[in-house]
Write a protein that binds this DNA or RNA. Structure first.
Length: 351
DNA sequence: TCTGGGGTCCTAGGACCC
DNA sequence: TCTGGGGTCCTAGGACCC
C-alpha cells in the first residue's frame, strides 16, 4: 500500500481531563474548585477505591486506584461521590459524537479516550480544533496527544495534560523516552518492568537494544518481541473504527465484611448470575462459558470455569452453573469478593 | 496507600484425537 | 510394546488497561 500524494496521516489520542469528576461538577456547579473524589458508592468509610479525583483533590495526594479510606485520610474536606455509570455513558456518547463529526476514523477506548486517524499538514491545529469542539459541545476539557502511531499518541497525551496538546514521534522517541523507566510505556506495568529489571533492563533504550530472543525466552514468544517493539516506539496497529463487540460480561462484588457464611455467598452468586444474564441478553448472544471468581481474605484470587453443554441465555442454567462452580472452591476460608462471568458465543462472522 | 469493577489477551499444561 | 508429533479444546492463572 502506498500513501496517496498530499498530507500524511497522524494518530491523535484524545483523553478527557478528570472525566468523572468533571461530569459531576457540571451538574453540581457548587463543587467547582473543590476537591472531588468519585469512587465506589461514595462512602469513604466503605471498601472501595478512587475512580477519578479532581485536580484539586490530587493536590492532596489523592489518585486513581487509591482506597477511599486512604483518600479520606489525605483529604478529609473532599466531596465523595458514587460512581454514576449512566451519567458518564451519556457524557461519553456526546464526546464521541463530537469526535466523529470530524469525519475521520474514531476508535473508542472506554468512557473518556479515543484515537483519531487524521490526514493533515498541521496536527497541532487539528488537535486544538478537537479540544475546542469538545469543550463547545460538552463543556468538558480534554487533552490531545499526537504521534506517528497509537502508542506514541497515547503517551504524548500525558505531555499535554491538562487542557493541552503533546507530541511524540518516531523522530524524537529516544530523545524523549530513552532514559525513562520501562513502565513509562503503555502496556508495560509493574510486573513486567520488574521482570525486565531482573534481566538488567531498566530504561526504554535498554529495552529497545535487547535482542528479541532474550525477551522471548523470559516473557514468551509473543509478548517478548512485542515488548521490544514497544521499546522502539513501534506500533503498526491501525486506528480501528469498528464498533466494539463484547466477548463476555461479568459482575462482581466485594463484601463490606469478609464473608464466612457460604449460603450468603451462594445468594450473592445467584444475584450476580441474574445480572450477567440480563447483560448478555441485551447483546442478543447466548453464553457459551460460565466463570466464577472468588477472592479470599486477605486478598487471594481463585477462578473456576466451565464450558456449557450448549450455549444458553437461560438465567436458571447460568445461575446453576455458577453455583456448581462455587462448590469446587475451598469452603474453609472467609470470602472477600465473589464474581460471575459469562463468555458469549461469537457474533455471526466472528469478531 | 490493606487493595473496585469491568474488560481483554497471553501462557501453559493436560485431555483427547488422528 | 513404555512410546512420535501435530492440532485443538478446556481450564486456571497472570498481566494489563481504563
Amino acid at each position: 500500500m502506498t500513501e496517496p500524494a498530499g498530507p500524511r496521516t497522524w494518530v491523535l489520542h484524545v483523553d478527557l481531563d478528570e472525566f468523572l469528576a468533571a461530569v459531576e461538577v457540571l451538574r453540581r456547579p457548587e463543587l467547582k474548585g473543590r476537591p472531588v473524589v468519585v469512587g465506589g458508592r461514595g462512602d469513604p468509610t466503605e471498601r472501595g477505591v478512587v475512580s477519578t479525583a479532581s485536580y484539586e483533590a490530587r493536590e492532596f495526594g489523592v489518585g486513581s486506584g487509591m482506597p477511599l479510606r486512604t483518600a479520606a485520610r489525605k483529604c478529609p474536606e473532599a466531596v465523595f461521590l458514587p460512581v454514576d455509570k449512566a451519567a458518564y455513558d451519556e457524557a461519553s456518547a456526546r464526546v464521541m459524537a463530537t469526535l466523529r463529526s470530524f469525519g475521520v476514523p474514531v476508535e473508542v477506548l472506554g468512557w473518556d479516550e479515543a484515537f483519531l486517524a487524521v490526514r493533515t499538514d498541521d496536527p497541532e491545529a487539528f488537535a486544538q480544533d478537537v479540544r475546542a469542539a469538545v469543550l463547545e459541545n460538552t463543556d468538558l476539557h480534554c487533552s490531545v496527544g499526537i504521534g506517528d502511531n497509537k502508542l506514541q499518541a497515547k503517551i504524548a497525551t500525558s505531555f499535554g495534560k491538562p487542557r493541552g496538546v503533546g507530541r511524540l514521534t518516531t523522530e524524537d522517541w529516544f530523545a524523549v523516552m530513552g532514559d525513562r523507566p520501562t513502565d513509562a510505556i503503555w502496556g508495560i506495568g509493574r510486573k513486567t518492568s520488574a521482570k525486565l529489571a531482573d534481566l538488567g533492563i531498566r530504561t526504554v533504550r535498554e529495552l529497545a537494544e535487547t535482542p528479541a530472543q532474550v525477551l522471548a525466552d523470559r516473557l514468551g514468544p509473543t509478548m517478548g518481541p512485542w515488548y521490544r517493539r514497544l521499546g522502539r516506539g513501534v506500533d503498526s496497529s491501525a486506528v480501528d473504527a469498528t464498533p466494539w463487540v463484547a466477548r463476555g460480561h461479568g459482575r462482581e462484588t466485594t463484601f463490606q465484611e469478609n464473608q464466612r457464611d457460604w449460603d450468603a455467598v451462594a445468594v450473592a452468586v445467584r444475584e450476580l448470575a441474574a445480572q450477567v444474564t440480563a447483560d448478555i441478553a441485551a447483546e442478543g448472544r447466548p453464553a457459551a462459558r460460565v466463570g466464577m471468581k472468588l477472592r479470599y481474605a486477605p486478598f487471594e484470587t481463585r477462578t473456576r470455569s466451565l464450558t456449557l453443554p450448549e450455549p444458553t441465555a437461560e438465567e436458571s442454567v447460568i445461575a446453576d452453573a455458577a453455583v456448581e462452580l462455587l462448590g469446587r472452591f475451598d469452603h474453609d476460608r472467609a470470602v472477600r469478593l465473589v464474581g460471575v462471568r459469562a463468555e458469549m458465543v461469537p457474533p455471526e462472522g466472528g469478531y
